[in-house]
Structure formats: structure tokens, C-alpha cells
């Protein structure tokens, strides 16, 4: 086994575990806002007070994101898209996976700088009021909608691709069923994510 095989497989895995799981947990925690302002603020302060928070952030979030992003840029570079001549459904999704990758990368960078590092390494200002003030600016709201859709689409299609790349779905029927399943994941994430976003408006 060469190193390239290992790193490529790790790229596929890191998108699901931990990043995909983290994305789902993130949307779930955001949804606390739908139950009201105090509920959200309580949830955030609970998260900020769990033990070994720095370890979780570093190992479960930052390192996997940086790895997935940098290796992903290389993967995007290695591709020569050809949807103009080969207009197949899967080829479109393959292309959109790369488009959404770039959008998600820009969005996540902006999002993390703005919300996680707004006050330096430790930010304690994340409250309902703070997020609400930001999202009530139409430009920011639209950018968030685009960023959310891109990351949900990237994750859902990446999930389908992961199942093929790891040899879990082999036959055509299994791959088709997995595609419907990934689409359901996309719809649920979109519904939950947008519902949480609109709770701040």
C-alpha cells in the first residue's frame, strides 16, 4: 500500500467521520434557537463549559477540516471536468461536488473567522443577540444560505461517494438506493439548518 492510497482514503473518511458527524451535531445544537433565545444561550454556555473542549475542537474539528480542505484543493486541481460533452447525472454531481467544495471552503473560513475567532483564540461573545444581529443583515443571511446549501450538498454527495470508495455499495441497485438515501440526508439537513437559521431573524 502506497502513501497516496492511505491519504486519499483518509480524505474520504475524514469528510464523514468526524466532519459529517460534526456538521449534523452543529445543526442540531443550532436548532436550540428554535426553542427560544434563552435556550440557545444556555446550550452555547453548556458547550463552552465541557471538559477538554480544546482537545475536541483541535482533534475532531480543526485538524480534520484543515486536512480535508488542503487535500481537497489538490483533488479539485487534479480534475479536468468535461460536463459539456458528457452530460450524465453522475458527472454533474461530480462537478458540483468540486464547485460546492470551493464554496464550502470559503464559507467555512469566513464563518470560523467571524464567529469562532472574533475575539481571538477564545470567544465568549457568541450569544443569540450577537448571531441575530449578524443574520439580520440581508447580505450575511444570503451568504449563509448559500454556504449552508453548498456544505449540505457536498456532505450528502460525499456520503454517497464514500460508500462507493470504501466498497460498501457495489452493485448498481445498492448505489441507486444509497443515492436516494443521500438525497434524504440533504433534505433533512437543509430543513433543519434553514429552520435554525430563520430562528435568529
Amino acid at each position: 500500500m502506497s502513501h497516496s492510497y492511505f491519504w486519499r482514503k483518509l480524505h474520504s473518511l475524514s469528510g464523514i467521520l468526524p466532519l459529517g458527524i460534526f456538521l449534523m451535531v452543529h445543526m442540531f445544537i443550532n436548532s436550540m434557537a428554535t426553542l427560544g433565545q434563552e435556550n440557545f444561550n444556555r446550550g452555547v454556555s453548556l458547550l463552552h463549559n465541557i471538559p477538554y473542549l480544546w482537545f475536541f475542537e483541535l482533534v475532531v474539528i480543526f485538524i480534520p477540516i484543515l486536512y480535508h480542505a488542503f487535500y481537497g484543493i489538490w483533488v479539485v486541481y487534479l480534475t479536468r471536468n468535461n460536463i459539456e460533452n458528457y452530460r450524465y447525472f453522475r458527472n454533474w454531481l461530480f462537478y458540483l461536488q468540486r464547485v460546492s467544495a470551493v464554496i464550502t471552503l470559503l464559507f467555512v473560513t469566513w464563518h470560523v473567522i467571524g464567529l469562532r475567532f472574533s475575539e481571538g483564540v477564545i470567544s465568549n461573545n457568541i450569544t443569540f443577540e450577537f448571531v441575530s444581529a449578524a443574520l439580520n443583515q440581508p447580505v450575511i443571511l444570503v451568504l449563509y444560505l448559500i454556504g449552508l446549501l453548498a456544505s449540505f450538498g457536498h456532505f450528502a454527495n460525499g456520503l454517497w461517494s464514500f460508500l462507493v470508495s470504501w466498497g460498501i455499495t457495489v452493485g448498481e441497485q445498492a448505489q441507486r438506493t444509497a443515492a436516494y438515501g443521500s438525497f434524504v440526508v440533504f433534505i433533512i439537513l437543509t430543513a433543519v439548518g434553514i429552520n435554525a437559521l430563520l430562528a435568529f431573524i
Binding site: S2, S4, Y5, R8, K9, V75, L78, T79, N82, Y86, Y88, R90, N91, F94, W160, S161, V164, S165
Partner: peptide
């Protein structure tokens, strides 16, 4: 290097 892991599942 350049083996099966480089497949991106475009399925063309």
C-alpha cells in the same frame, strides 16, 4: 500512486 483511490466516481 495513480491507482484505484484516484477514482472520483463520476461514472462516465
Amino acid at each position: 500512486e495513480g491507482g484505484i483511490a484516484d477514482c472520483g466516481n463520476a461514472q462516465n
